Computed example of a mutant assay.
Amino acid sequence: MPEMTIYGIIPGSPSDSGKGYPTPDDAARAALSEIDTRSVEDKSEYAGNVYQKSDGSYTFSPPARGTDRTSRAEDSQVPKGVKVVATYHSHGGEFAVSDELFSPTDKIKATFGHNDGYLITPRGDMYKYLPVDHVPPAAQNEFAGGLVVRLN
């Protein structure tokens, strides 16, 4: 198969979208790193999906640009037949306290989508949100609203 370069959100800049990573967390870290600077500069959210490839590795879809307050991972296409395991997104560069956290809407999307959610904040902090059904059963009572874990 011929080699293909996938371009990211910065016109003309290559993206690691499609590259295989050993875990969903590793794929999400790569995706979030790609969108961080541009999201802050544009004051826009970007979003995409983390999915499992046929070889068992994980990767991410190219980011889709949203607005200053919203983004939609479903606007970032994934190949047919792959398993989406998570979504990722950024919060645009307002540097408000609320931009440094998962919003209630972020958590609802992850919970109803039955996927983990990843976030990079304007300050560059990376987080993972696990809906309650992804929290280990022994901890579900303690984390009934889901669990947020820092990735960096």
Score class of each variant (00 low, 15 high):
10 I>H: 03
10 I>V: 15
10 I>W: 01
10 I>A: 06
10 I>K: 13
11 P>D: 05
11 P>Y: 03
11 P>L: 01
11 P>F: 01
11 P>V: 01
11 P>K: 10
11 P>H: 03
12 G>F: 09
12 G>K: 10
12 G>E: 12
12 G>D: 12
13 S>R: 14
14 P>Q: 06
14 P>N: 07
14 P>Y: 06
14 P>S: 09
15 S>I: 11
15 S>Q: 07
17 S>R: 00
17 S>L: 05
17 S>H: 08
18 G>Q: 09
18 G>V: 11
19 K>H: 08
20 G>Q: 03
20 G>C: 05
20 G>L: 07
21 Y>I: 05
21 Y>L: 06
21 Y>V: 04
21 Y>D: 01
22 P>R: 03
22 P>C: 09
22 P>L: 11
22 P>N: 10
22 P>K: 11
23 T>H: 02
23 T>C: 12
23 T>D: 06
24 P>C: 07
24 P>Q: 13
25 D>G: 08
25 D>Q: 10
25 D>V: 13
25 D>A: 08
26 D>W: 00
26 D>F: 02
26 D>E: 15
26 D>R: 08
27 A>T: 04
27 A>Q: 02
27 A>K: 04
27 A>F: 08
28 A>W: 08
29 R>G: 02
29 R>W: 00
29 R>I: 14
29 R>L: 14
29 R>V: 14
30 A>W: 03
30 A>Q: 13
30 A>M: 06
30 A>Y: 05
31 A>V: 09
31 A>K: 12
32 L>P: 14
32 L>N: 11
32 L>T: 12
32 L>Y: 13
33 S>M: 10
33 S>A: 14
33 S>F: 08
33 S>I: 00
34 E>Y: 09
34 E>F: 06
35 I>V: 15
35 I>G: 14
35 I>D: 13
36 D>F: 15
36 D>R: 12
36 D>E: 12
37 T>W: 01
37 T>S: 13
38 R>E: 15
39 S>W: 04
39 S>H: 06
40 V>T: 10
40 V>E: 00
40 V>W: 00
41 E>W: 04
41 E>S: 12
43 K>L: 06
43 K>Y: 03
43 K>T: 12
44 S>Y: 09
45 E>R: 07
45 E>W: 07
46 Y>I: 04
46 Y>S: 03
47 A>M: 04
47 A>C: 13
47 A>N: 04
48 G>P: 09
49 N>I: 00
49 N>D: 04
49 N>F: 00
49 N>V: 00
49 N>M: 06
50 V>C: 02
50 V>G: 03
51 Y>K: 09
51 Y>I: 06
51 Y>R: 08
52 Q>E: 14
52 Q>G: 01
52 Q>D: 01
53 K>D: 04
53 K>C: 02
53 K>E: 04
54 S>A: 15
54 S>V: 07
54 S>N: 11
54 S>Q: 13
54 S>P: 01
55 D>S: 10
55 D>R: 10
55 D>K: 10
56 G>M: 04
56 G>Y: 05
57 S>T: 15
58 Y>T: 01
58 Y>G: 00
58 Y>D: 01
59 T>S: 14
59 T>F: 02
59 T>Q: 02
59 T>G: 01
59 T>M: 02
59 T>D: 02
60 F>S: 03
61 S>W: 04
62 P>E: 14
62 P>K: 14
62 P>H: 07
62 P>A: 12
63 P>T: 00
63 P>K: 00
63 P>E: 10
64 A>L: 07
